[in-house]
């Protein structure tokens, strides 16, 4: 049985096709990432899958149940991270966790939720006194109080400082160790690469790539990436037409070259540098990443 099964899901807002024929399956115990820029349809997908939004077309099964036909069977077994932590602003963190726990047939002990989300020291603080990052962690915690089988986290780390992000990664890794299914949306590619067993890249309401992060990268790139700061390249046209360079991508910060033959590229770049087309002071060689995959598939960077 799939934890989540989505077939040909569509949700239109008038002429806007927020989700336009999306299909994927998430097996039990997997950490699945839905990856895409803002406005790509990630939140709409999560809300239709969890039954918060009515879909226009398609089939959705969560743990074998349709969330619209059988909402109670679904809701008691999934946890969704939402902006509901400040339901009662003058309840403490601990009281809020206990309150939400009372909604579920099975509960995770409140102390465990506090420990998981790193809010132990804030247990007796009123919710309306929490910082943005702490509220975010609490809202993740509220998705876990039910000791549920599938956890949906919508942009759990956006707006968090690096340290808070890392501690949330730990939460997700703990859930994976517990055998929970995690469905997570993000626009941080490094996060998806590090945490997710599989990712689906969504853009303009459609899934444009789906698979294990490593597979997606090797499928689209056997090349290595070479980055040169944009300011050190005088003539970008000079880089095209060099046989050792398979692709060139230029943005405001840097020029990225993809190549199968690193040694030859350095020879070629050396010649260009001698002729004054570019400088080779700050050159970086790296493996291709999901970011490169997204760029190749859409022609844009994910945070544009």
């Amino acid at each position: 049985m799939w934890a989540v099964l989505v077939e040909e899901l569509r949700k239109y807002y008038g002429p806007v096709k927020a989700v336009d024929g999306v299909s994927f399956e998430v097996p039990l115990g997997e950490v699945f990432g839905l990856l895409g820029p803002n406005g790509a349809g990630k939140t709409t997908t999560v809300e239709t899958v969890t039954g918060l939004l009515r879909r226009d077309q398609g089939r959705v099964l969560v743990l074998g149940f349709d969330p619209l036909m059988n909402p109670s069977a679904v809701k008691s077994r999934i946890g969704v991270q939402l902006q509901i932590a400040h339901l009662f602003p003058r309840l403490t963190v601990l009281e809020t966790i206990r309150l939400f726990g009372s909604f579920y047939p099975q509960r995770r002990p409140a102390e465990e939720v506090l420990a998981l989300t790193g809010l132990g020291e804030k247990a007796r603080v009123f919710v309306d006194k929490l910082s943005g990052g702490q509220l975010k962690r609490l809202s993740v915690g509220l998705a876990l109080v039910g000791n549920v089988e599938v956890v949906f986290l919508d942009e759990p780390t956006s707006g968090l400082d690096p340290q808070a992000r890392r501690s949330l990664w730990e939460v997700i890794l703990t859930l994976r160790r517990e055998g929970k299914t995690v469905f997570l949306t993000t626009h941080y590619l490094d996060e998806a690469e590090k945490l997710c067993d599989r990712v689906a890249i969504i853009d303009q309401g459609k899934i444009i790539a789906l698979g294990k992060p490593r597979d997606l990268i090797t499928e689209h790139f056997v090349e290595k990436a070479v980055e040169i700061p944009r300011s050190e390249v005088r003539e970008t046209n000079a880089l095209t037409g060099i046989p050792s360079i398979t692709r060139v991508s230029v943005d405001d910060e840097k020029v990225t070259l993809y190549t199968l033959n690193l040694a030859q590229v350095f020879v070629d770049l050396g010649q260009l540098a001698e002729r004054g087309y570019l400088a080779l002071r700050n050159i970086v060689v790296r493996e291709a990443t999901l970011e490169d995959v997204f760029l190749k598939l859409t022609g844009r960077r994910i945070r544009d």
């Binding site: 039954g51 918060l52 809701k75 999934i78 969704v80 939402l82 902006q83 909604f103 579920y104 039910g146």
Partner: peptide, 11 residues
């Protein structure tokens, strides 16, 4: 503040 709407995702 859509809190009620979001509560719809809990049991």
């Amino acid at each position: 503040r859509k809190i009620i709407r979001h509560l719809g995702a809990t049991p």
